[in-house]
Design a protein around this nucleic acid. Structure first.
Length: 460
RNA sequence: GUCCCCAUCGUCUAGAGGCCUAGGACACCUCCCUUUCACGGAGGCGACCGGGGUUCGAAUCCCCGUGGGGACGCCA
């Protein structure tokens, strides 16, 4: 059977890191098996779904390069189909109308909680043989509930967590259509996963509890039951759950922060999945290696340091043109104007081994295009009176030489020996004058790329 | 509260009963390289949650405890 997976986000916010990993794993699983990956937008919560969020999700997927073979499908456009199925269930008796008001339900829940019970619907409108249902109240539009089996267990072999068994007694009759007639999540998922021929449902661990209900509905519909793989959560770097207020960040934020998509992807791939000791690999490699057997069932903590390490690696690997373009964009955002791409390209080449992010790269390179801010501590330490004469002398020499890194280096060396100094004694103050700080690549390279006029103007 | 799930270095993880005096990676520390800082290279520190079983043998299997997480919506 052809593998078909899906990613089914609800458009109530951006694509965050956890969703991205779910999408990545579903995508890779389909690729690995030569199957299809489907994108489905679960927008049945009209109150919270927004077109902006849909766009944000699409943007995030696109940035990561997670392309889908089918979709995006929108559940709101499939309403007729869901309603048809609900009618069918009503007719077959696997669903029924419930006239409880929200207030009634709230009261029920509250009293159950107080008694230490698991809050759930008590089945008062559930038709049963020989049971007398309450009189239908006037002025209440009913919801439709699924008639969940009363006993037995729902058991499935979760491809990540192993066998999971839940007693039907723990489950209540969930609402599959709201009072306004619109179907709810658990029902739409069931219909869609079935009709879209999904073979493997790979999703977040927070859906484990929905699975037995969905299996029950699938069975009522006489549908094929897909395989399930529940991925555990990604925790924030502090071990806390990622939430809107707490560290959950859009994948696009990583773009803004100067991360390369391949670094984010590689990082996410290793968060909860492994292939022996392999740490760095391409997405192509990942798609060949990926399997559900090597996914950890336990939650993983997000670790920015490791992401940085991967990002630094991919920056070193990135081709010059891309880095130049990226850096230029970021410099521009900082209000720094770049002379020419060729020059920037050389500058980037000099710096790309020293940056964890593209933003760091842009920041560290900015002094080439605007006057540096001189760090007071560095200045105090290195711009000492005793090196002044040597610097002044060097400035004179630099005016006349051919502007080549080797010759600049040679000129510095000349003064070093003339004044009987050590090389750093002269290199450090130059560094501070040129860059503002005490760290930089080879000073002759820096001076060369700065250009003679700029170098002379920065010598004080 | 009830149900479900999880548990190896600080972090991500390898580990499917003997290959484990527990391997790798990030981070951290030391040294080397060096024109400073990075990069790179070589080392180092550092973990099987606790208790019971099962077994000749357990990080691996079972039970209990503890800790963490998730779910309990006319949200998805």
């Amino acid at each position: 059977m052809k593998v078909r997976t899906r990613f089914a986000p609800s458009p109530t916010g951006f694509l965050h890191i956890g969703g991205a990993r779910t999408a990545l794993f579903s995508w890779a699983f389909a690729k690995k098996h030569g199957g299809q990956f489907i994108l489905r937008i679960e927008d049945t919560d009209v109150a919270r779904s927004t077109p902006e969020a849909v766009q944000a999700i699409l943007d995030g997927m696109h940035w990561l390069g997670l392309d889908y073979d089918e979709g995006p499908f929108y559940q709101m456009q499939r309403m007729d189909r869901y309603k048809e199925m609900i009618q069918k269930m009503l007719q077959e008796g696997s669903a029924y109308y419930c006239y409880c008001s929200k207030e009634e339900l709230d009261m029920l829940r509250e009293s159950q909680m107080q008694q230490g019970l698991k809050p759930r619907y008590d089945g008062r409108w559930r038709p049963e043989e020989g049971k007398r249902l309450p009189d239908v109240p006037v002025g209440i539009s009913p919801v439709i509930r699924f008639k969940n089996p009363l006993d037995g267990h729902v058991v499935w072999n979760d491809l990540v967590k192993g066998e999971i068994s839940i007693a039907n007694q723990e489950l209540d009759d969930l609402i599959i259509a709201r009072a306004d007639g619109t179907p709810t999540y658990n029902f739409c998922v069931v219909v869609d996963d079935w009709e879209m021929g999904i073979t493997h449902v790979i999703r977040g661990d927070d859906h484990v509890n929905n699975t037995p209900r969905q299996i029950n509905m699938l069975q009522a519909l006489e549908a094929t039951i897909p395989q399930y793989a529940h991925l555990s959560m990604i925790l924030g770097s502090d071990g806390q759950k990622l939430s809107k207020r707490h560290g959950a960040v859009s994948v696009m934020q990583y773009d803004d922060d100067g991360y390369l998509p391949e670094a984010v992807l590689n990082y996410l791939a290793r968060l909860g999945w492994s292939h022996g000791d392999d740490e760095i690999f391409s997405m192509q490699q990942f798609c060949e290696w990926f399997d559900l057997d090597h996914i950890t069932p336990s939650a993983a903590q997000f670790n920015t340091e490791k992401l940085n390490w991967l990002n630094a690696y991919y920056i070193k690997q990135a081709d010059a043109e891309r880095l130049t373009t990226e850096t230029k964009t970021r410099l521009k955002a900082m209000g720094v104007v770049v002379d020419g791409d060729e020059h920037l390209s050389a500058v980037v080449a000099l710096y790309k081994e020293r940056a964890n992010t593209l933003n760091e790269l842009a920041e560290s390179v900015a002094y080439f295009y605007r006057k540096p801010v001189i760090d007071a501590t560095a200045a105090e330490k290195h711009l000492t009176p005793e090196v002044k004469p040597a610097i002044a002398q060097l400035a004179e020499v630099l005016k006349a030489i051919n502007w080549q890194p080797e010759l600049i280096h040679h000129a510095i060396n000349e003064e070093v020996s003339r004044y009987q100094l050590k090389f750093p004694k002269l290199a450090m103050p130059l560094r501070v004058m040129m860059t503002g700080i005490a760290q930089s690549p080879s000073i002759d390279q820096v001076m060369y790329l700065l250009g003679r006029d700029e170098v002379l103007s920065r010598i004080v």
